[in-house]
Design a protein around this nucleic acid. Structure first.
Lengths: 182, 182
DNA sequence: TCAAAACAAAACAGATCTGTACACCCCTGC
DNA sequence: GCAGGGGTGTACAGATCTGTTTTGTTTTGA
């Protein structure tokens, strides 16, 4: 049950974790930035790791809802429906405080130290793959192309951190069109 | 000038930074694991950030040398020369302690807190792109395909952390062949 | 009105972090 | 023999981290 104070804590934590990383962001900073007392923070989340998990769970749900809605609006649009998430990357990568993919960042920091966090990132990627497969099938393409689209998507998100990547996005859009129409 | 003790420190630091992350790995742990006294460590590297930079610089050089050598051995081999780095991903992703791309992990943790580290990761990606462009041109393909290959490469490295990705590598190899021959 | 719950602010405990200082050892060259 | 550089080991300073406790205030609801 989402209370407003809990949501506000998750907002602040997500922003700081995403921009500065998980280990580099202290509880004190989240507490100070959110204006909520530390006692309250630890009443809502029993530990920092629990807060990280809650942030990732909520963020994953948000991503899924956004992609599902866009997909439903473009139902039957053929290749345009597949390309839409990739076109959105233009906007995502130009946001201030952009720092790649939150789930991959979490997986990198907790790969061998927190299996629950790693598993949550894994499930998110699993969902992304299944989502792409569903879209491909519904628009008449072969589902195994999802295994090409998913690395492209994550790769563009990753590269955008260190490169001006609108050109890479454009080239990739063209490549996807080629791959699907051949 | 590489002294053996300095190289050994860099080996240990690279392994720990790569597996567990940069903020999560303390100087004490590098010191204990390498068996070198802390005083000696700080004689070779003036700070933890300097050690991180030295690790990344050496790792980047190693990657470049490996890719250059492979490329020179496959000179004139056409599409096989382009695919070779992607085929290597099978072995890389199955190594124990695999944790994605060291440079992207560093960029994620220091995106807004250490411009020098971020710049080093950026330069590495820049070199990767130029390397792919050179290979493409030399084998008679159009250089702008590098902007598709690079996200694919980084995306596969990133995905392999949370997915059994040999299937993704295979599908991507097929997709690259399609893209280059069309 | 009053009891109970929620919250804020701050101090605190204990651990860990980076980086420095100090004392000792060991080995090589003279 | 011995001076000196490089190394070890340990203790330490000061900061920061997670998480708890304490105290007092504010809000809420019967």
């Amino acid at each position: 049950m989402p209370t407003p104070r809990r949501e506000h804590l998750l907002d602040t934590a997500e922003q700081l974790f995403y921009r500065d990383g998980f280990h580099a962001t202290g509880i004190d900073r989240i507490q100070a930035e959110s204006g909520v007392a530390k006692t309250t923070l630890y009443k809502h989340f029993q530990s920092k790791d629990a807060l990280i998990l809650a942030v990732l769970e909520r963020a994953s749900t948000k991503v899924r809802e956004t992609l599902e809605q866009q997909a439903s609006e473009l139902s039957g649009a053929g290749i345009r429906r597949i390309l839409a998430p990739f076109e959105d990357l233009h906007g995502i990568c130009e946001e201030s405080d952009f720092n790649g993919c939150l789930f991959n960042n979490a997986a990198a920091e907790f790969m061998y130290s927190n299996p629950a966090i790693r598993a949550l990132a894994s499930e998110h990627m699993q969902w992304m793959q299944a989502f792409l497969e569903r879209l491909l099938l519904e628009e008449g393409f072969s589902a195994d192309k999802a295994l090409v689209l998913l690395p492209m998507y994550e790769g563009l998100l990753t590269l955008a951190r260190v490169q001006e990547s609108s050109a890479a996005i454009e080239c990739t859009l063209g490549a996807i069109a080629t791959l699907l129409t051949v």
